[in-house]
Design a protein around this nucleic acid. Sequence first.
DNA 1: TCTGGGGTCCTAGGACCC
DNA 2: TCTGGGGTCCTAGGACCC
Length: 416
Amino acid sequence: MTGKVRRIAHLDMDAFYASVELLRYPQLKGMPVVIGGGRRREDDLLARLTAERPDEEWTAQTLHKIPLDFFPQLSDYAGRGVITTATYAARQFGVGSAMGLMKAAKLCPQAILLPVDFTQYRHYSQRFKSIITEIAPVMENRGVDEVYIDFTDVPGGQRQGGKVLARLIQKAIFDDTGLTCSVGVAPNKLLAKMASEFNKPNGIAIVQEDDVQTMIWPLACRKINGIGPKADEKLKSHGIGTIGQLAARDPQWLEQSFGKRTGAWLHAAAHGRDDRPVVTESEPVSMSRETTFDRDLHALKDRAELGALFTQLCEQVALDLQRKGYVGKTIGIKLRFDDFQIVTRDHTGTHYTADAKEIRRLAGLCLKRAPLTKRLRLLGVRVGALAKEDEIPAMSAAVSKPAKPETADDWTGQLF
DNA sequence: TCTGGGGTCCTAGGACCC
DNA sequence: TCTGGGGTCCTAGGACCC
């Protein structure tokens, strides 16, 4: 028997949000459907339902019972927002993730627009992940619909390069949830991630060390997880379009052009090298809440509205922290102006807190340091430098002194 | 009628300490 | 009256990912 080799899988649920919605509304099968529009859409829906079907009581918890004919077609929708997921039928029309709803409406006006229902998606997320860990315990979370799995020491994980185990997991997930996924198995996370895209949907792809030249080098650099639009553009400006072209460049030249660290990483990635482990546990670094307004707001003219929203965001972040048992030391704000410029301000305090009023007070101080001449499109509140509530570092043991009430006047009370 | 929300990590300069 | 490094923390911005 030959020795074990490292086998890492990347598993990606197919059109996850949309597929979960299809479980709820099977009659949508084969039809173009997009999910998106943000949370406010839920509120709008609830308001409409309450108005138009008053005989039933509608809350966020009963949202999943909304009759299908309540949802608009894209052509009837007027509002801000982007697509989170599109069904494969909708993708045929060229619509896809992160596309603005207005643009999508032009490409596929007949698509049904469903609001996001995170509660439901989280439920299915936990289900498919627990199925995986029962079979292969070393799993790393990559958001709600993706994981890495270490196949190396799992029984059967070496057979046919991982194909047998991948198929077993696929089947177990489908039998339990009715959802399909795509799996790539390779010597490391970098290659596994790329491989999982090869045979979507409901596919499996196996990449071996020797396959890098034939299977990876023809791909665009953008397929490397970590090369985004900016890096891709820069690579193209140097005549580098494919991973093979990147691999052919002198590593010294890469380090000179992209910086020591990035250059070395680019070189390694292009050769399919990556030794990052599969990490099963991690602590959160920050928690935040942000919201894009229905219309751009003015710091002074819309002061009351902004002040109320600001307080609400602080309360939501505080609740998130408390629910998960965290406290934080750095409080920050984020503003997006009407021209899409983003500004952040933060402040690291002397003690940890998860108290809404204290967060509100410190975020208010941050706000006073931010420029507020342009109209605002988005407002966010963030708490960072987190610690577990029951494991606060001894040096700064003082926790969340409740904020003084006088702070309430806030929203730029100082300005102008 | 362009462009969500929640994250992580990196960089770079300045403060401050030894 | 001159001129060090190294290390860490903080802040702001930006790239990138799901």
